[in-house]
Design a binder for these strands. Structure first.
Lengths: 150, 150
DNA sequence: CCATCAGGGTTCCCTGAAGGAACTTCGCCT
DNA sequence: AGGCGAAGTTCCTTCAGGGAACCCTGATGG
């Protein structure tokens, strides 16, 4: 995607974008997460160009969020999330929650999440890791950190 | 960014990407959120091309996540988050948390969040909106919803 | 034992978006 | 009247995405 290399930016958002910010990457991650794990399956599911899919998968593997595994004696591989990648799914769940709320379409969401603990179809809510209270845009003061140009 | 129009995909992740998935958009949102709200300021802070910044801001305004306001009698404008945009900040906080954890760099994060409720510099954790228990990748079953091709 | 098949890519060309710098516009300021 | 500064706009060049065709490898099958 970006000509500009975000990883130089000393910003966690920018660096995260450098990992999954390229076009298609979040959708590829979603597919891998829900079990669409083979090249052909992902390509067919997303309608993505094979060239771009190759590039994205290589990049995700390089970044350590996805793992390439042989599943046959023949040269056949599938892709699985690493621990690092599994935590990126948080991002997908937040995108899903926001999209469901603000952009709800006719066809409805393609992925529903049933929460093991309560058994309900639910969505995520953000809490403070420290005190457990809700933590959204106006529940915090954003403070310029060391890497800020502001 | 994408030639392919994600908004057609009947997928909340894809539709969300259609709003803030283009290169730079999340970083622009971050700037607006932390108070870097004028065209020149954002351009200088990010080093983004003026052309692309214009396009992104127009798109964000069209999507209703950012609002353009005059701040002078002269033709001067600044940009502010709408309610829809403020909820997108959730996404930035999750990206920050993930990036801080997995991609920590020398310079450290550019934005720190101090939580009003507890006064601590903290980060977000995802909870089930229904039962309040932790909700991450392997705490849920992703179920194919109506829009899925799987 | 050669032909076919299927998965997983790679190569090629074409188009369109990002980068970058120069130019424009509008209204204040002196 | 001339200059300034914010906020764009225009133009050109370069590079990444789309799409289709091609390639390679190890079964399988007649």
């Amino acid at each position: 995607m970006q000509r500009t290399n975000f990883s130089e930016m000393a910003c966690s958002i920018a660096r995260t974008l450098d990992v999954i910010g390229e076009p298609w990457s979040p959708l590829i991650l979603r597919d891998v997460y829900v079990g669409i794990s083979r090249f052909e399956q992902i390509q067919a599911d997303l309608g993505i160009s094979r060239k771009v899919l190759t590039e994205r998968l290589n990049h995700l593997v390089d970044q350590g969020v996805v793992e390439r595994r042989p599943y046959d004696n023949r040269p056949r591989y599938d892709y699985h999330l690493t621990a690092k990648g599994a935590e990126l799914v948080d991002l997908l769940m937040v995108m899903t929650a926001w999209g469901d709320k603000w952009l709800a379409g006719e066809a409805g969401p393609p992925v529903l999440y049933r929460h093991h603990a309560c058994g309900e179809i639910s969505h995520v809510d953000l809490r403070c890791a420290h005190c457990g209270e809700p933590m959204h845009a106006y529940d915090v003061d954003p403070l310029p950190g060391p890497g800020s140009a502001a």
